[in-house]
Amino acid sequence: MEAEDLRKEYRRSPAQVVHALNGVTLSVAEGSMVAIVGPSGSGKSTLLHLLGCLDRPTAGRIRLLGEDPSRLPPGSLSDFRNRNLGFIFQQHYLIPTLTAWENVALPLRYARVGPAAARRRARDLLAEVGLAERLNHRPGELSGGQQQRVAIARALACDPPLILADEPTGELDSTTTGQVMILLRRLNRESGRTFLIVTHNPEVARACDRCVILRDGRVVGEEGLVTAAGAASPDP
């Protein structure tokens, strides 16, 4: 995955333009686990949205798995996301009316996988994240950690090579955070998937192979190249 001189501007009013990203250049090797850290407003989530093809950059270029998503028509972009990208969000974003397996099978529905195959795949994935007994539970019947594990299983549903996680442990206690990170690390090592994790949590950052630090929409350093205070400064 490569990003070159990525810029994103939001125009709040004709006179007020917010520069969320000011020329981010980043390269992520296949199979690595990279953390993106930085204070609030540094552009972490914006970068993740651009790399996740959820938004288009104002300027700059992205290459994902050998393709330039900005050249894809909107319909194909959905398919591209579905096939190649898995998302894990801070608040899990599980659909409350669907059971655990139905939530996991959601990306498979959009990949036009039949219901029986989707159910099988969802069951296997939930077993992989330790929720084999919770197939038919609704999100409201699961703990925070369990919900996040369902979200992780959902991110893996279409077997994407790249997983993008936005504060995956932001709502979890330290014990559960540890468990989730062990799980993510295992998935990274066993399957060779690439993980890009936006986080405030220094422990999460430390668990990654590499840590990219953003500030004011720019990459200001990487782990080992900047001061510890810069890498681990959480939001106020």
């Binding site: 959905s78 579905n82 096939r83 990306p107």
Partner: peptide, 12 residues
């Protein structure tokens, strides 16, 4: 928004 992120097309 979540469904779109997971690959739902406009038609879906």
């Amino acid at each position: 928004g979540l469904k779109r992120a997971l690959g739902a097309r406009t038609a879906d």
